[in-house]
């Protein structure tokens, strides 16, 4: 399954790349914060990321989504990034890595 393997590799690279994006208030990476719910990669390099923010209506929401889009788009092998914001389930502090 080389295709699936490649997709898993892309997802892992995206996850690593997104680790550099911090939540400005907490100062921790958004991956570590549990704000990235899902990363899916298609065979043609199209990527779908489902994410949230610590608070619905947070003024940083658009900047965070934009940063995720830019960051994931810079990964080799990614051709298109679709970022979806969700609050279902809403984020809670237990989603953070210890």
């Amino acid at each position: 399954m080389p295709e699936a393997f490649q997709q898993a590799e892309v997802i892992e690279r995206i996850r690593q790349q997104l680790s550099s994006v911090i939540d400005p208030e907490i100062g921790r990476g958004i991956v570590e914060m549990g704000l990235i719910y899902v990363i899916e990669a298609g065979p043609a390099g199209d990527v779908h990321i489902m994410m949230t923010t610590t608070t619905k209506g947070c003024p940083a929401t658009a900047f965070l989504a934009d940063a995720v889009r830019a960051c994931a788009g810079s990964v080799i092998g990614v051709t298109n990034v679709d970022v979806e914001l969700t609050y279902d389930p809403p984020w809670n502090p237990s989603m953070m890595a210890p």
Binding site: S20, V21, I22, P24, G27, F63, D66, R69, C71
Partner: peptide, 22 residues
């Protein structure tokens, strides 16, 4: 501090190293 961060660092988040609000 938070609004200043958003104003100046929000647009470059994910593209360049940014400070924490703190």
């Amino acid at each position: 501090a938070f609004m200043t961060w958003l104003e100046f660092y929000g647009p470059v988040l994910g593209r360049t190293p940014v400070p924490r609000v703190q």
